Amino acid sequence: MSRLDSMLRRLTAQRDGLNWAVAQISDMEGDVLDMGLGNGRTYDHLREILPDRRIWVMDRVLQCHPSSTPPAEDFLQGEAEPMLEKLGNGGPKIALAHYDFGRGIKENDVAEAAHLSPLIARVMRPGGLLISGQPLVGFEQIKGPDTIAPDRYLFYRA
């Protein structure tokens, strides 16, 4: 599979997974957390499909497209570990989290996701959903939408 086809498959899975998750949490209170802002495409989509929810965003640097810049009060800038600790110290409980951290080196990205998993667990509402491109630990893995190939995108319940 070409890198272009792989990217299209990943982005389609991400969109389909987020849309599916929104329906799953419709009766659940809580905020949303987008881990890994990047250029802001996912954040922009979350804003569109969840207009009445507060969406927290974290990343090392703010370098997204200007139209996808989160409000300053919702952007947690810095390394993931201290930002998750900050959010977990009496902060909001998250109903839906999207994990998209990574530098493109699979073994390093998997290790980082495992390391951050306990901190992510502290910010989640019981029963909340996590969607991730990397395996997370300590959560119940669940089946996502049928349109997504197994292990293309991962789905968890807190």
Rank of each mutant, 00 (worst) to 15 (best):
S6C: 09
L130M: 14
L116S: 08
S6A: 14
E73V: 11
A158D: 05
L154Y: 07
L50M: 11
Y99A: 03
Y43W: 10
G78I: 00
L130P: 00
P92G: 08
D52S: 09
V137R: 14
G88T: 06
T42E: 08
M58R: 00
A21M: 09
H45I: 09
Y43K: 07
T147C: 12
T12R: 15
P126C: 02
G102T: 09
D146K: 13
L76E: 07
L62V: 12
P145Q: 01
I49D: 02
W56L: 14
R125I: 10
I120K: 00
V32L: 01
R53W: 07
S26P: 03
R157Y: 04
Q141K: 12
R152H: 09
P51Q: 11
F75S: 03
F75I: 04
S2Q: 10
L84N: 03
E48C: 08
F75L: 10
I25C: 02
R152W: 05
S26N: 09
G91M: 08
E29G: 13
L62G: 12
I55H: 02
L18D: 01
P150M: 00
R157K: 14
A21P: 06
Y99R: 01
G138D: 09
D74F: 12
D100M: 12
L96W: 05
N19F: 10
S132M: 02
C64R: 00
M83R: 13
F155M: 05
V110C: 07
M1N: 10
N89W: 03
T12H: 13
H115T: 14
E48M: 10
Y153I: 14
H115E: 14
L84P: 04
L154V: 09
L50V: 04
V32D: 00
D74K: 04
I55Y: 02
L154T: 04
P82A: 07
S132I: 04
I120L: 15
T12L: 13
R15Q: 14
G88K: 05
E48S: 14
S117L: 04
P82S: 08
Q14L: 13
